[in-house]
């Protein structure tokens, strides 16, 4: 209740909201993954992600239960374009600019698309984001 009252007191509903830090970060590929590219980038790309062995998987359980530790993920044509841009040298802002110019989007259209897509890749361990 108190918090709500404080919020109402503020005459500025948008307060210094900035995503500059996100734009300065660098998306980098996970060096531990393998990928197979087809001749035609339009088909996409297959990424093999090495999973972590669960802690409970010790003998004798591991003699019986043998889960598949390697996961496969299919990245579509747009994902391949982003994969190429995320080479570890470009900042997120440069990746977004590159994506925006390729697809003739505005900066924020590209920002929302790129960050949404990369979020999925980060969750799956395909890429990581290095924040300064």
């Amino acid at each position: 209740m108190k918090k709500r009252k404080q919020q109402r007191l503020s005459p500025f509903s948008e307060e210094n909201v900035s995503w500059r830090r996100l734009l300065e970060s660098k998306p980098v590929r996970n060096s531990g993954i393998k990928f197979e590219r087809s001749d035609n980038d339009a088909d996409g790309m297959c990424v093999h992600i090495k999973g972590k062995k669960p802690a409970f998987l010790i003998p004798p359980i591991s003699w019986v239960i043998r889960p598949r530790l390697n996961k496969r993920m299919w990245i579509d044509k747009i994902g391949v374009q982003l994969w190429d841009l995320c080479d570890g040298t470009r900042t997120m802002e440069q990746v977004i600019d590159g994506f925006a110019s390729t697809h003739r989007l505005t900066f924020h259209e590209a920002r929302v698309s790129v960050t949404g897509y990369l979020k999925g890749l980060v969750e799956r361990g395909v890429i990581a984001v290095v924040v300064k």
Binding site: F12, S13, E14, N16, V17, S18, W19, R20, L23, E93, T106, F107, H108, R111
Partner: peptide, 29 residues
């Protein structure tokens, strides 16, 4: 380079927020 990131469809009261590439720059209510 300022883009509308938030908007209201209401006529009686509402607001729009515009941003440059780094942060919000203008709010119109």
């Amino acid at each position: 380079d300022w883009e509308m990131l938030r908007f209201s469809q209401r006529f009686d009261d509402g607001r729009c927020v515009f941003a440059d590439r780094y942060q919000y720059r203008l709010e119109m209510t």
